[in-house]
Amino acid sequence: MVDKIIIENLSLQYSDGTESLRGVSMEIRQNAVTVLFGPAGGGKSTLLRCLNRLNDLTEVKASSGRILIDGENILDPKTDVIALRRKVGMVFARPVTLPMSIRENIIYGLELMGEKRKSKLDEAVERSLKLSAIWDEIKDRLDEPAIALSGGQQQRVCLARVLALQPEIVLLDEPTSGLDPISTGKVEAALLELKKEYTVILVPHSVQQAARTADHAAFFLTGELIEYGDGKTLFTNPKQKKTEDYVMGRFG
């Protein structure tokens, strides 16, 4: 097992005064699903947004610490953020398809890279839609507007859009929060396939989902990492009282 990402003593404070992360340190393994869970406002999403520097878009007052991906500190100002974001893809809570056709959505990132060869683009569309378990459903309507798809389909298109870039790490921020159980099942099944090739970091939308999917799990509470360990152990036999209380449903 290789540590793909090493987070060292990461703290972050937003401009409006809210503190979002306090001294978080953890290692994230390659080719596994790592789940970050806990009550809202715990800093899970903030951590995700640090990993591909999407927090650059928000007003951050102070941050300290390091995030090493393949040994390089990505918080370094000299980091090529564009290359980083291609390497670390992200799927959001609400399925946001861009206002264009399904195909254009999938190849959006590749076209930004300057890829113009039709064969390469077609190949990427097919491969990523198959990985996201939606190819059979929509292969005949790729040129229709993506907005016409159902919520569950849109979310899988969003996943495919990320996969088309062949990232190494996939971040998912409550990707099934707005979906029905059947779509949720499809997305989760796709995740388990993904970890063969990618490093997957998931913020689940429920403890149950966390338990179902986690190889490794990290419990966050008010910006602090409370407990981190093997997925099976953490949900059946947590070491910390706070983790136990949350997993048992006593708060949150």
Binding site: L54, L57, I82, F92, G109, L112
Partner: peptide
């Protein structure tokens, strides 16, 4: 134009100007 279009586009490796010229202006 919804903020989420900007976030998504940036997260896919677009620069600010690419996001504006390819999505925001069109919308």
């Amino acid at each position: 134009v919804p903020q989420s279009f900007r976030t998504v586009s940036i997260s896919l490796g677009a620069t600010r100007w690419q996001t504006i010229s390819r999505i925001i202006l069109k919308e």
